[in-house]
Nucleic acid binder design. Structure first.
Lengths: 206, 206
DNA sequence: CCAAAAATTAAACGTTCGTTTAATCCAGAT
DNA sequence: ATCTGGATTAAACGAACGTTTAATTTTTGG
């Protein structure tokens, strides 16, 4: 990718994450990227075009990992554990992409809502086929990807959303690195939680 | 509260949630609220003043519920269950407040970051005293509010963030009401998850 | 009923917004 | 060396931005 385009993308994702999409001006963005204002529209068509690239980059990566780790003929427990083991470092490495995606998720801009929807649809289908359906067989459950999906992402996600504030109130020792087993903790909580829930449901309807 | 002020607040929280704070113009806001443009600055001082009221309203309510339900001499299990039983309907009833708070959380606007931090600090302390500390006693754990807090909120939160997109990809039956036992499900997942995690940690270090 | 206070209005303030245009720069290929 | 196409620039576009002012209407309380 051309160096200028790359710098615009990098600066854009950083500023959108720190100030919010709507509160970021293209002139300040261009200045910080060391690039002429017109280059943003030249390379990305529009401000919204830049946002789309950011959302697309993150969601494509997320979906790719989900596909690789969840689509396998193995125990759900193993698959979920492997998925979390990969997705948490991925999010950590693309923290700003993640923050932008998450904070723009609920905004129903007609130009990009179908864009987001197409990705979410794929991920929901994946969770349905690889987690919910296998979990259902053998039990008389009713766990849907619409419940389990957000729960899983949410457990991981919120940490990164509040991290800037944690930085303010507790400047030391809040990086995720020290918790080298952070993904293990999340995996334990999630798996114990889900299996505990299923057990309970079985008991109820028995 | 004066009717005009109320309408500005209601319209403001709705528009900030749907379009984002930075992408919402005060003229459109005033129009939709059926109010003169100048009234917004008259009642709230500035656009950011309006945002502060929204954040304050939600976080104060959240903290109040956490204080009431978590500060008690009872089993953690009971307290967490009661907290979730109250906090989920609260968020559901103040969905737009919640979305605005969440999506503005990572934006480090110097004017409001200390504002958010003061609330988060209170909530972190609460979780520390009422959940983490009691959980620690008797075990050789190390669960901090900085891990457990975001996990708990995140499990609940993400559902509301992606709901607008779920509406798009699956227009029917996605309201949380049908899951009349949604908070029970979350509570089960969370409690099973935490206790499972603690058990594991004990085993490891035994 | 009238004065004081509060609510509301229209208009303008200067600034910044995202975008476009047209000219220029600079490689690499001919 | 020159042509060519992409990269880059400075400048301007009109629109929208958040905020302020000053005048006016409405409400309140003595």
């Amino acid at each position: 990718m051309i160096a200028s385009k790359q710098r615009i993308l990098e600066t854009g994702v950083a500023m959108f994450a720190r100030k919010g999409y709507g509160s970021t001006g293209l002139r300040e963005l261009a200045d910080q990227a060391g690039v002429n204002l017109a280059m943003i529209n030249y390379f990305f068509g529009s401000k919204k075009g830049l946002l789309k690239v950011i959302l697309d980059t993150f969601l494509a990566g997320y979906h790719e990992i989900a596909k690789q780790e969840l689509t396998a003929d193995e125990e759900i427990e193993v698959k979920v554990r492997r998925f979390l083991k990969r997705i948490i470092p991925y999010i950590k490495a693309h923290r700003d992409y993640f923050i932008v995606t998450l904070t723009e998720l609920p905004h129903d801009d007609p130009d990009i809502i179908e864009y987001k929807a197409s990705w979410i649809r794929k991920i929901v289908d994946l969770v349905q086929d690889e987690i919910c359906t296998p979990l259902s067989s053998g039990t008389n459950k009713q766990i849907t990807p619409y419940v389990i999906g957000p729960v899983m992402i949410g457990m991981i996600a919120m940490r990164f959303l509040v991290e800037p504030i944690f930085q303010t109130i507790k400047p030391a020792e809040l990086d995720i690195d020290p918790y080298h087993d952070y993904s293990d903790q999340i995996a334990e909580i999630f798996l114990n939680g889900i299996f505990g829930l299923l057990e309970l449901k079985n008991k109820e309807t028995r």
